[in-house]
């Protein structure tokens, strides 16, 4: 099996690598653009994927409604920014308030969703929780659609085109740069939160063994709530950033973004935080290459194909550990 995998790997990567080198030499700027575009895309995926991977690590549930939390983050930012913009506020204040509101509201939604749809099902079969999650996702999408609009709403970019960035703007725009930088900062903050704070330690303990954690005095319910809140916060940051980047928002953006982020989380090894980041970057860059060099209309098909291949040949992902079922 291992030999087979290696042969398969060489057979796939070899020609691709050959093709890649040829293309890079032919047009290095195009390649760089694609690479940086992919990095941007991957950063957004990473911000969403973190929520999936953290929740999965702690309660072994795919939080289907996570994409919707991200969408609500983007929506809230749009609404707040538009209202304040009409009231003629200073644009710097608008940016800060929009981001703050998006994060606060996404956290509140994440918290509420957990209390309604998942907490009562903690001891129920996995299938029940999964169906409940799908129901929640469906509800939130339609709630936003009915309360707002089914149409795309244009989003004025909150991030200004910085003057000093002008010379590089043809390769990577200021917005893209902001996305990458923000993601890196968020990652570092999150890493510190998990590594050094008390709640971070409690999270790690709960992920390893819920019963043991509660025995040593950890409030497991609070840890789970916190996990949802933290995951929602990073998703909200992702939501605001992507809205700035793409320039429009509607009720359905969470579906595909959520799926892609989930694929990224699985690719990196679900349950593993560095894995989610790595998986997101790999997925983002390879998607960007695929659409840039091959067929752009089959972009989503490509992502799903990656998911299926990963799940078949290495279900634990790039950095994940093999799971041992307890009997």
């Amino acid at each position: 099996m291992r030999l087979f995998n290696i042969i398969l790997g060489v057979a796939v990567v070899g020609p691709l690598g050959f093709f890649g080198i040829k293309e890079i030499i032919a047009d290095p700027v195009y390649f760089l653009e694609l690479f940086l575009g992919g990095l941007t895309r991957g950063s957004i995926y990473a911000l969403i994927a973190l929520g999936y991977t953290m929740v999965y690590g702690i309660i072994q549930l795919i939080n289907f409604a996570h994409g919707e939390i991200y969408m609500i983050g983007a929506m809230t930012a749009l609404i707040v920014a538009s209202v304040l913009g009409l009231w003629g506020w200073n644009s710097a204040v608008i940016v800060i308030l929009a981001i703050v509101f998006a994060i606060v509201y996404s956290c509140a939604y994440g918290f509420t969703v957990e209390k309604i749809a998942y907490k009562p099902l903690r001891t129920a079969p996995r299938l029940s929780a999964l169906i409940s999650a799908i129901g929640m996702s469906l509800f939130l999408q339609n709630y936003v659609m009915l309360a707002q609009t089914p149409e795309f709403m244009p989003f004025e970019s909150l991030i200004p085109d910085f003057q000093f960035w002008e010379p590089f703007a043809h390769i990577i725009t200021a917005v893209e740069m902001t996305i990458i930088v923000t993601t890196v900062i968020t990652m570092i903050l999150l890493g510190m939160l998990i590594k050094f704070t008390k709640i971070g330690k409690a999270m790690r303990a709960t992920a390893q063994d819920k019963i043991m954690a509660s025995l040593v005095g950890i409030n497991v319910n609070r840890v789970i709530s916190t996990t949802f809140v933290v995951g929602s916060a990073t998703a909200a940051i992702g939501g605001v950033l992507i809205a700035c980047h793409v320039g429009q928002v509607n009720f359905f953006i969470g579906f595909l973004a959520g799926l892609k982020a989930f694929i990224a989380a699985v690719l990196g090894g679900i349950g593993s935080i560095p894995g989610a980041v790595l998986g997101s970057l790999v997925l983002g860059i390879s998607e960007s290459m695929f659409t840039g060099y091959f067929w752009s209309e089959y972009e989503d098909v490509f992502a799903f194909t990656i998911l299926v291949i990963i799940l078949i040949f290495r279900p634990s992902g790039i950095l994940g550990k093999d799971e041992i079922s307890k009997v």
Binding site: Y298, D300, V308, P315
Partner: peptide, 22 residues
């Protein structure tokens, strides 16, 4: 895909449905 754990199955089948439509 049926060798996978249950929750992965949900995502993969969802993906497959979308692939067919695309």
């Amino acid at each position: 895909v049926l060798r996978l754990r249950g929750d992965y199955l949900a995502i993969v089948t969802l993906g497959f449905g979308e692939i067919i439509r695309i």
